[in-house]
């Protein structure tokens, strides 16, 4: 990370290496398609320049076969790269279910990361290596984007919606992370460092952060403080769906759709309970929009997630 002159970014995951491979292969193919044009044009400009004797007989004005072939062959070649790059994208959108989940909040102008054990850090992010890590992104104000060049990934953090990115870093080290979506005055200072560590170092780092009660533990407390338990606990008088085992399971909706109860679904349900009504239940829950802070919301979702997986 010294001021040395570099021409290629560091590579810290298998996916990043694959992106490099696509880029290099695509560059080679495109050069093969375009360099001949330049050479040909330079040659023509020299050979057929005005005042020079040259054979200019039978110039062509059209040729359907040539036209079609230089229309379709490059397109066909390019499609290979479309598929290759789309597969990488597909991989980016499908994290393994066992990934380590870290929550990230973007706000003007800092990143806040929260580990499953409750450890929080600002602008720096410590992750274990050789383990899939999923970063759940939300924004408290404007649109931000978490961008880690060494991993060749970025994803917007959007207010009011949950997004995520995931990676499996395979090389320990310090890498830069940025906000890549313009977010106001100090946009360029909304940057930090990603520390990819040996798993045992990561454990040690977590421990050194002090034993904070886990997010889910804090969420359990909030669950009763906000009065959720009054209706959603077993044995309550109000008929509300039980939340045990909810996370990750399919939920049938009133309008016939079936959705998966994921992080964004649960968040939406807490903030705007009137939408996505659940089949077989009367909608009685009040909206918590504006009544609950984003970090509390994350904690409650973490709690619901924890009782969903047991």
């Amino acid at each position: 990370m010294k001021g040395a002159l570099v021409f290629w970014p560091p590579t810290a995951s298998a996916r990043a290496a694959e992106v490099d491979h696509v880029v290099i292969a695509f560059t080679v193919v495109l050069l093969c398609l375009t360099v001949p044009i330049f050479l040909f044009m330079t040659y023509c400009a020299w050979k057929y320049r005005a005042g020079r004797a040259a054979d200019r007989s039978h110039p062509q004005a059209r040729n359907l076969k040539i036209e079609l072939s230089w229309m379709l062959i490059p397109f066909g070649l390019a499609l290979i790269f479309f598929v290759w790059a789309a597969r990488i994208y597909d991989d980016e959108l499908h994290p393994p279910p066992n990934a380590l989940q870290i929550d990230a909040i973007g706000r003007q102008w800092m990143w806040k990361f929260q580990h499953p054990g409750g450890q929080a850090e600002i602008n720096d992010l410590h992750v274990p290596m050789n383990e899939p890590v999923r970063i759940n992104l939300i924004s408290q104000d404007v649109v931000h984007a978490l961008y880690i060049p060494a991993l060749r990934i970025q994803m917007d953090a959007i207010p009011g919606r949950a997004t995520f990115l995931w990676f499996d870093a395979d090389r320990a080290g310090k890498y830069r992370l940025y906000c890549s979506e313009f977010c106001g005055t100090d946009h360029s200072r909304m940057a930090g460092t990603l520390y990819v560590m040996e798993p045992k170092d990561y454990e040690a780092w977590l421990a050194a952060q002090g034993s904070v009660a886990g997010l889910a533990e804090q969420g359990r407390e909030l669950f009763s403080r906000f009065g959720c338990s009054g209706c959603h606990e077993r044995g309550s008088t109000v008929r509300a769906p039980s939340l045990a085992g909810l996370y990750g399971s399919p939920v049938p909706l009133e309008d016939g759709r079936i959705v998966t109860a994921d992080v964004s679904y649960i968040m939406d349900k807490i903030l705007y309970p009137d939408q996505n009504k659940i089949a077989g239940y009367k909608q009685k829950m009040p909206s918590f929009d504006g009544k609950i802070s984003d970090s509390d919301l994350l904690r409650i979702v973490a709690f619901i997630r924890s009782i969903g997986t047991t």
Partner: peptide
Amino acid sequence: SALILRMLHPGA
């Protein structure tokens, strides 16, 4: 815009 709104918040 109206259609998107309707899709996002049918109940409201």
